[in-house]
Every structure is written in C-alpha cells, then in structure tokens.
Computed example of a mutant assay.
Amino acid sequence: MVKYQDNADEALNAVFAALADPTRRKVLQDLERGHLSVGELAQPHGMSLPGFMKHLRVLEDAGLVTRAKDGRVVNLALSPEPMQEAAMWLSRYEKFWSERLDALGRYLYHQEELNPPWKKAQRKASRPPSISPGTTPPAAKKSGARGPTRKR
C-alpha cells in the first residue's frame, strides 16, 4: 500500500532527518552567529571536505541553510523558516503530552489521598504469621571436602 504524503509532510520529514545528526545540529548552532564559509564550518569537525559537504547538502535540501558564493568562497547562512514549522508541529504534541501528564499527576495525587503509603506499611506489619506446617530445610552446602587424588 502506498501512503500519500503532501509537500508539507515531505518538508517536515526532511527537517527532522537533517536534525537527527549531531554534526548537522552543530553546523546549525555555529550558523547562529552569522554567515560562515564552508571551510570555517568544516574545520572543527575533523572530517574530509567531501564528507562534510554531504552534511551541508542534507541541510540545504531541508531548507535549513542557504548558500551564497562570493568569488571562490561559498558562505552559508541559517534559514529559520523550516525550523519554525517543525516547532509548530512539536508544540501541538507538547500540549497533548502536558495535558496527559497533568491528568496522570492528578490521578496519582488522588490515589495517594485514598491509600496513603503509611497505611500500607501498617497493613504489612499486622499480617498474621504463616500457617504452613512445614519448616524450611537448611540450604545445601556448595561443595564437599576434597576427594582422594591419584598419585603418579
């Protein structure tokens, strides 16, 4: 079965895929300071330039960075619009989970009022002794004494 995805879903998927990698998140964090060249961005990562360029391509395809070429130098800048869309998507679920966790907190508080922990301790302490007629046998020893050895 083929699932239909509209362009908004594909864009959101690309943003989350780009954010899934720590190298790409660090690049975005570095770009918060402003425009930086590819060399300046690649230097702290200690990887080959072709490998680093693949990370930049993923960020660019997701719309998170823009390129501007100035002579031989390629500068990158942060493009915040896709992040805002992802933040809006996450905020819906933040509201959902906040409401659920608040309801769980109210439920647990109510349960604690009905059954305080100190009453459970009193009930455990006042249990009658066991009515089983048998006794527990002592634990078996781990091993016996050393056996005879054969002389050569």
Rank of each mutant, 00 (worst) to 15 (best):
1 M>G: 12
2 V>A: 10
4 Y>D: 04
4 Y>Q: 05
6 D>C: 09
9 D>M: 14
13 N>L: 03
15 V>W: 01
16 F>Q: 13
20 A>G: 15
22 P>L: 11
23 T>R: 07
24 R>W: 00
25 R>Y: 00
25 R>L: 14
27 V>Q: 00
30 D>Y: 05
30 D>N: 08
31 L>N: 04
31 L>F: 09
31 L>I: 10
33 R>H: 13
34 G>I: 09
34 G>W: 06
38 V>Q: 05
39 G>M: 03
42 A>F: 02
44 P>R: 02
45 H>M: 08
50 P>G: 13
52 F>M: 12
53 M>C: 08
54 K>F: 03
54 K>I: 06
54 K>H: 11
55 H>W: 02
59 L>G: 08
61 D>N: 14
62 A>M: 08
62 A>P: 10
64 L>R: 11
64 L>T: 15
69 K>V: 11
69 K>C: 05
70 D>N: 14
70 D>F: 13
71 G>M: 00
72 R>G: 13
75 N>T: 04
77 A>E: 13
82 P>M: 00
82 P>V: 01
83 M>C: 10
83 M>D: 11
84 Q>R: 15
85 E>I: 07
87 A>P: 03
88 M>V: 15
93 Y>E: 15
94 E>L: 10
95 K>C: 02
96 F>G: 00
96 F>P: 00
96 F>S: 01
98 S>Q: 13
99 E>G: 08
101 L>N: 11
106 R>M: 12
108 L>Y: 12
109 Y>R: 13
112 E>I: 04
112 E>W: 05
114 L>Y: 01
117 P>C: 01
118 W>S: 14
119 K>F: 08
121 A>K: 09
125 A>L: 03
127 R>Y: 02
128 P>R: 12
128 P>K: 13
130 S>W: 00
130 S>N: 07
130 S>P: 00
130 S>D: 11
134 G>W: 04
134 G>A: 07
134 G>V: 01
136 T>R: 10
136 T>I: 11
139 A>R: 14
139 A>T: 10
140 A>C: 02
147 G>R: 02
150 R>W: 12
150 R>Q: 12
150 R>M: 09
150 R>D: 06
151 K>V: 14
151 K>I: 10
151 K>A: 12
152 R>A: 11
152 R>P: 09
